[in-house]
Design a protein around this nucleic acid. Structure first.
Lengths: 354, 354
DNA sequence: ATTTCGTCGGCAAGCGCTTTCCAGGCACGG
DNA sequence: CCGTGCCTGGAAAGCGCTTGCCGACGAAAT
C-alpha cells in the first residue's frame, strides 16, 4: 500500500512521541514500557513529557503483535445475568484492573459447544490468560476438546484457570461445596431438623453432587439423614416444580427441612410450599446455597451458605495473572453457614405437630 | 531481531495456510475474509481446505493492526454484580456475539474518573464501538472529558452509544423512566393509593429525577399526589435508612404508598417497615422499579415496573455494531407496570384503619 | 597512553495480516 | 489480427510497536 490509510485510532503514535522528544522510537519504547534496558535521565524525561503533551496512548494491538501476547484476561461464563457469575465477574474485573489487564467476556450458556467456539475465537486475541467458570457437566462430549485447547494455550505461554469446576489438571479455584454442605447439614440437624429432603439440580453437575453428598455427611454427623432427593432444573422454576411434585406425592410429609441446591431453588421451593399450604420456616425449614443478595430479603429470611464469590473471582484472576502465583494447584474457598429465620431452632421446644 | 521469537499464539499463520494451499498470502486473505475481490473457485477451495486442515485461526491483533480497528465492543458499566447492569450486559453479549464481536468489559464503580481512565485504556484497543452504561450524575467534572474522548472515537470511525443516561448528542438507548413512572403512578392511584411518599436516590441522578417526576405526574392524573420525598443511597441500605427516618419523623403517617426509586430500595424499605411494626402491602403499599428477578419472590410480591433490560443492551449493541442502524437518535424503551401484592386494590373496600 | 569494558542510542527486522498496485491472461470488438 | 478492457493472482508496503544487535562513547584497567 502506498498511500497512508485512515487510522481509526486517530491518536499519535510512538513515532510521533519519539520525534517530538528528539529520540528514536526504540528509546521512546524503552522509556514508556518498563524495559530492562536503562535510558538516560535526560532522554527519559523528554520522552515522558512528549507523551504527556501528545496524550499518547499505545496501540494495544500493535503491542500485542510485537510482543506476541495481549494484556487480556478472557472470562468464560455460562451466563452473566446470574448473580453467581456476575459476582465472580466483579472480582475478576477488579483483580484484572489491578494487574493492568483488559477483561473480555464470553457468554456460553452452559453449552460446551459454544464454550469451545468462544474459546477458539478468544484465542485469536492471544490472551495472557483464560478463566473458565461454570459448573461443568461431567463427561461432556466437548470437554476433551476444551481441555486440549486450554492446554495448547498453556503450552504457548498463556495461563488457564478454572473456576468452580473440575480442573482436569489445570489450576482451579472453587467453592468448598463439600465442606460447606457438610457444615450446613450439621448445623441444621443440630437445630433439630433431622429429616431432610434435598431439592436440587441434575446429578451430572459436579456442584450438585458435592452439595448433596456434603449434606448427607453433615446431617449424619448430627444424627439426621437425607430421606429423599428430588431433581429438576438448577434454578427457581426447577425448585418450584420439584417441590410441587414432592407435595403431590407426599414426599414431604415426614420431612423437617427442605434443603435446596441453591438459593434460587430455595426461593422457588418456598413459593411452592406456600401454594401447597405450608408455611416455610414454620411448618418446614428451608435452606439454600450461595447467599444471593436477596436471600436475606425473602420472608422468612433464608438460611444458606455464603461463598465469597467476588473473592473467588479475584483469586482466580490473580492466579492467572501473577507470574509469582504458583500454578497447578487447586484453591478451595470455604463457605460460611448463615443461619436465618427459615431454619428456626427446634431444640428444646416440644416437637411441633403437623 | 534476527531470530524467530516465541509465538505464544502458537498456531499456524496465514502464510502457512497460503503455502499449504499453494497460493499467495494475499489470495488466502481474500478467501478467508469476505473481500470485495473475487477469487477463483479453484483457489478458494484449496485455501478453505488448507485452513481447515491446519485449524487456522486468524490473529485478531494482527487483523486489528492491519485494518486499523478491532472487532471489539467495549462495555463500560458502573458495576457488573448488579442485576440491572448484568442484565444489560447479557443482552449486549448476545448481540455482540451475533455480530462476531468480542466484548470487553470495564467496571467503573460509578466514578467518572475511573470511567475516563477505563475509556482511555479501552481506546488503545481501537474498538469498533463503545457502550457506556450507568446513570450519570449531572454536571460531573469528568463528563466533558468523557464526552470529548467519545467524540474523538467517533471521529476516528468508531461508534459510541449511551445506555440509560443522558447522551450529549451521541446515540442512546434508555428506559422510558418518565413514561413508566407516570404509568405506575396512575395505576397505583387508580388502585386507591393516593398519598405517596417517594424513597429514592440522590437528586443528581437523572434516573431518580425522571422517576420521581413521572410518579408525580401519574399520581396527579388519578387524583393522587406525592406528599414527601426522602433521599438516600440508591440501593437496599439507602431504602432501609430513608424509611427508618420517615418512620421516626412521622413522615409515613399520612401515606398510602411508599414508592421506591428502585427494587432494591423497595426491599430495604419493606424490611424497615416491618422493623417499624408496619406490614408492607397491608398497612402501606410499596412499589419499586426495574423488576429484578427476586421482586416476585419477596413477600408481599413487589409491584414494580419491568424494563426489558437485556433487550436494551441488545438494542444498544445493535445500534453500535450495525452500520445500517442510523445513529444519532435516542431510543426510548418502554416499561411495563407489574401490579402485584404489595399494592393491593383499595377501591371499593372501606378505607382501612391505621 | 593504550586496551578493555560497560552503557546507552539507534538501526532495522520482524510480529501476522490487509490492501494497493501491477502484471499476465483471457475474451472481446474493431 | 491487434488493440482494449476486464478479471484474477501475486508482490510488497505498510499498520505501530518491541527488541536483538551494533556502534559510539566515556570510564576503568593495564
Amino acid at each position: 500500500m502506498r498511500k497512508p490509510r485512515r487510522r481509526p485510532g486517530g491518536g499519535p503514535t510512538l513515532a510521533d512521541v519519539a520525534a517530538r522528544a528528539g529520540v528514536s522510537p526504540a528509546t521512546a519504547s524503552r522509556v514508556l514500557h518498563q524495559s530492562t534496558r536503562r535510558v538516560g535521565q535526560q532522554h527519559r524525561e523528554r520522552v515522558l513529557r512528549a507523551a504527556r503533551e501528545l496524550d499518547y496512548r499505545p496501540d494495544l494491538s500493535a503491542q500485542a503483535m510485537a510482543r506476541g501476547t495481549a494484556p487480556v484476561l478472557a472470562l468464560l461464563v455460562s451466563s452473566i445475568d446470574d448473580p453467581y457469575f456476575s459476582a465472580i465477574a466483579a472480582g475478576v474485573a477488579r483483580s484484572a484492573q489491578r494487574h493492568g489487564a483488559i477483561v473480555t467476556i464470553a457468554v456460553t450458556g452452559r453449552d460446551t459447544g459454544r464454550e469451545l467456539t468462544a474459546l477458539r475465537t478468544i484465542r485469536g486475541q492471544r490472551p495472557r490468560a483464560v478463566l473458565v467458570a461454570g459448573s461443568r457437566t461431567l463427561g461432556s462430549r466437548h470437554s476433551e476438546a476444551l481441555l486440549a485447547e486450554l492446554r495448547s494455550l498453556v503450552d504457548a505461554g498463556g495461563r488457564a484457570v478454572f473456576i468452580g469446576r473440575p480442573s482436569g489438571g489445570l489450576p482451579a479455584v472453587r467453592p468448598a461445596n463439600l465442606d460447606a454442605a457438610r457444615a450446613l447439614g450439621t448445623a441444621i440437624a443440630g437445630l433439630g431438623h433431622r429429616r431432610a429432603v434435598v431439592v436440587t439440580g441434575a446429578g451430572r453437575l459436579e456442584t450438585v453432587r458435592e452439595r448433596t453428598e456434603g449434606l448427607r455427611q453433615g446431617l449424619a454427623a448430627s444424627g439426621g439423614r437425607v430421606i429423599a432427593v428430588e431433581s429438576d432444573a438448577f434454578d427457581r422454576r426447577g425448585g418450584y416444580r420439584a417441590t410441587r411434585r414432592l407435595l403431590a406425592n407426599g414426599g414431604l410429609s415426614a420431612a423437617d427441612v427442605l434443603c435446596a441446591g441453591n438459593d434460587f431453588m430455595a426461593v422457588g421451593a418456598m413459593t411452592a410450599l406456600r401454594d401447597g399450604g405450608l408455611r416455610p420456616g414454620e411448618d418446614i425449614a428451608v435452606t439454600g446455597f450461595n447467599d444471593i443478595e436477596t436471600a436475606a430479603d425473602v420472608t422468612p429470611r433464608l438460611t444458606t451458605v455464603h461463598f465469597p464469590l467476588a473473592e473467588i473471582g479475584e483469586c482466580a484472576a490473580r492466579l492467572a495473572l501473577d507470574p509469582e502465583a504458583c500454578g497447578g494447584e487447586d484453591v478451595l474457598v470455604p463457605g460460611l453457614v448463615r443461619l436465618r429465620d427459615s431454619s428456626p431452632d427446634r431444640r428444646g421446644g416440644a416437637p411441633r405437630e403437623r
